[in-house]
């Protein structure tokens, strides 16, 4: 049985002129025990989908189930078995770490002791600060506490809305390690993120853009969908070089990626010579051109253009 099913979910919000379609009838499924990534830029509709699945928001149309329970009819059963960590830190800032945990344990009809095993590893990291007020914790600590609070009632499905946004690189890696340990315990995890590089840490990902799905696949599967050759180029005048490449009618796309530009051609022949020629013609020196493996971000850029 699929843990989460989403069928043709549509959600619109009233806007100044007419309505804004936040979700345009998307469908996908999540298997039991998966770490499923919902990846897309800000405003793609990730939070709306999370709020629908956590029974906080009603969709305009479509069906969705969590653990086999309908999000509209059986919302009460869902609330007993899910953990939700909203994108915005939303624990009580004026209660201490321990008090927050105790409060959320109790309102989910359980106690810290009962499920301590599940959160032990994470909680031990923040335990030295257990009497500190939640509002005075650092960003990474807050995330850990929020995760503890979302886990304390031993949910079978965990919804994490942009848990790593605004968190430093080290804490981000730690956070993903924690997620993988939770996965071992059999918890299904749906996590959203705007960072493409985190996609490879998920079992499967859904790329979402402007309320529509671009692709649902394993990270490897998504990369294998990228059929064309990807070139990495650099020269002394990076910006001028990019403008020159973009002007060429044979180039499909060219965008900056870190210290290099990624280039895709419409046809496959003579691409390297072609790029060399552009560099020479425009007097750019130190041109370095090579073929590279695409990553998720390249796939996302390619899918967005289709």
């Amino acid at each position: 049985m699929k843990t989460v099913t989403i069928e043709h979910i549509v959600k619109t919000y009233p806007a100044e002129h007419g309505t804004v379609e936040a979700l345009k009838g998307i469908s996908f499924e999540i298997d039991q025990g998966e770490v499923f990534g919902l990846i897309g830029p800000d405003g793609a509709g990730k939070t709306s989908l999370f709020r629908i699945l956590t029974t906080l928001l009603l969709a305009n149309s479509g069906n969705a189930t969590v653990n086999g329970f309908d999000v509209v009819k059986d919302y009460k059963s869902i609330r007993n078995c899910i953990g939700y960590m909203p994108g915005k830190f939303s624990l009580y800032q004026d209660l201490s770490v321990q008090e927050n945990l105790e409060f959320f344990a109790t309102i989910f009809n359980t106690s810290i002791r009962q499920n301590y095993g599940l959160i032990k590893e994470i909680y031990e990291q923040i335990e030295p600060f257990k009497t500190r007020k939640a509002g005075q914790l650092s960003g990474g600590m807050k995330q850990k506490l929020a995760l503890c609070c979302a886990l304390i009632h031993k949910p079978t499905v965990l919804f994490l809305d942009e848990p790593t946004t605004g968190v430093d690189a080290v804490s981000r890696r730690e956070f993903w390690e924690m997620l993988h340990r939770l996965k071992v315990q059999g918890i299904t995890i749906l996590v959203s993120t705007p960072y493409m590089d985190e996609a490879s840490l998920c079992d499967r990902v859904a790329l979402i853009q402007k309320g529509g799905l671009l692709s649902v696949n394993t990270p490897k599967g998504i990369i294998s969908e990228f059929k064309k050759t990807l070139w990495s180029v650099s020269a002394d005048d990076m910006f001028g070089f990019m403008k020159a490449i973009k002007k060429d009618p044979g180039v499909e796309s060219c965008y900056p990626f870190g210290q290099v530009h990624h280039v895709v051609f419409k046809t496959e022949e003579n691409s390297e010579a072609w790029l060399q020629q552009i560099a020479v013609q425009n007097n750019y020196n130190k041109a370095a051109i090579k073929v590279i493996e695409p990553n998720i971000e390249d796939c996302f850029m390619a899918l967005m253009q289709d």
Binding site: L56, R79, K88, S90, I107
Partner: peptide
């Protein structure tokens, strides 16, 4: 405003 009501709302309270 703080968003804490969301956490209360997803609970069985």
């Amino acid at each position: 405003e703080m968003g804490t009501i969301e956490q209360i709302n997803v609970s069985p309270i």
